[in-house]
Amino acid sequence: MSRHHVRITVNGVAREDEVEARLLLVHYLREVRGLTGTHVGCDTSNCGACTVMLDGQTVKSCSVFAVAADGCEVLTVEGLAVDGQLSPVQQGFQECHGLQCGYCTPGMVISATGLLLENPDPGDTAIREGIEGNLCRCTGYEMIVDSVRWAAEHGGAGAVATGTRGR
């Protein structure tokens, strides 16, 4: 298996690594960079637990090779809070009980952040469409929708939108 040199910036920290061509970005993040907040929940790119932001766009990191992220900036759930202060989306999920087991949550929070970057004031249908690619088995989604709406009303995407994170 060929190995390749990559330089990937994750949550503002750039690093160079040698990786196998087939290494998925999600495994690069989890195992090479030690950022285990991004989860794996399926093998068909349906569940969205692995969602991260790549150069400002949400992607499913199980469907991106690490080599394809060479030269890119990645934002993971670990990069959302600034100086220990939860982002509005993270706060919204706590306020509105938008999580239970927490396993889908990092991907869900990143997708919601991506949605609010594109549409700072989404209605319920737009929120549901925005998180359609993220499966949650615990909440039945309504309280996630509430969480995203709370975030929209309390600072939206947060620091990501002002360019201090992830872009």
């Binding site: 989890r30 950022l35 285990t36 907040g37 991004t38 989860h39 794996v40 993971t76 759930v77 670990e78 959302l80 809070a81 939860l86 993270q90 999920f93 706590q94 999580l99 927490g102 396993y103 949550t105 990092p106 929070v109």
Partner: peptide, 14 residues
């Protein structure tokens, strides 16, 4: 919630 929301949970594969 705070640990789960910041990617600091600890699941088996972590």
């Amino acid at each position: 919630d705070p640990s789960l929301l910041t990617g600091r949970g600890s699941y088996v594969d972590d």
